[in-house]
Design a protein around this nucleic acid. Structure first.
Lengths: 131, 131
DNA sequence: CGATCTTTGACAATCGTTCTCAACAAGCGT
DNA sequence: ACGCTTGTTGAGAACGATTGTCAAAGATCG
């Protein structure tokens, strides 16, 4: 039950730190390959899963359903503004929104409330790159 | 290019109306089967896809990534409070949130902004049913 | 160092969803 | 009502992300 520190897990964390923005498991796997680190894809998935459970990384779903991972600066609850082309991410928080969400849900008699609030857009660079 | 009204499409729309809450394509397919209507799964997916494009149905992704569909009362933009157990849905709108979202995104130089704002919870009935 | 016990990785298996393509049927004109 | 044209259907294959399998490998501890 004790989490062991392995070469592979360290490598995944390093890749996350290096890439900074939201990336898919497969992108991370490829980045590790490119760097010469040999890590199995399944292992990357397992590492990310473990990190997510430990709240070490944030997970969100791209519009096509793929899971994206990122090591965020703040560990407290927050949301993201993500570029759908390059993954560039800006952390945002919205105290107003939080309050609104829980108030609305409670008013309807719902429990165990969770909310998904993510903003997607095209960042200035990608817009420029697309002509 | 003209959309044809087929037995299958009508059936899918009927199933949606009957079930009222957010359902997966597979759930709808099964409901049709159970009712005696013979409709292929692929056809259900295609019908839902077409309906979604025409803004006839709302689509959202469950926490496990599955797509859920629903015919909403209002066709204007709005959000949902959904029971993660039974799919029961309450339509909500948050003018405050909308404004907040576009303001934040624009401030960061992002374009083509879209936002995902969904609330998940356990409705009173499901809470009771779980003891 | 050695025993223990988690972790790894190549590959198979899942699961939702989309694709393929020949058979089929709406809608239109006659 | 009758073909024609052309969008639609359905069974099954294909796909892509993710998870499961299990024997071999390696971390940790005494």
């Amino acid at each position: 039950m004790t989490a062991r520190m392995t070469r592979q897990r360290t490598a995944v964390v390093e890749a996350l730190d290096e890439l900074a923005d939201f990336r898919s498991a497969q992108q991370l796997h490829e980045a590790l390959r490119a760097r010469g680190e040999s890590v199995g894809l399944a292992t990357v998935y397992r590492a990310l899963q473990a990190l997510a459970e430990a709240s070490e990384v944030d997970v969100l779903r791209a519009e096509d359903g793929e899971s994206l991972y990122r090591r965020c600066a703040r560990r407290e609850h927050h949301h993201h503004l993500v570029c759908r082309m390059c993954g560039r991410t800006v952390e945002i928080d919205g105290p107003t929104v939080e309050a609104w969400a829980s108030k609305v849900a409670a008013a309807q008699g719902f429990d165990d409330i969770e909310h998904t609030i993510e903003l997607w857009g095209t960042c200035a660079d990608c817009r420029a790159a697309a002509h």
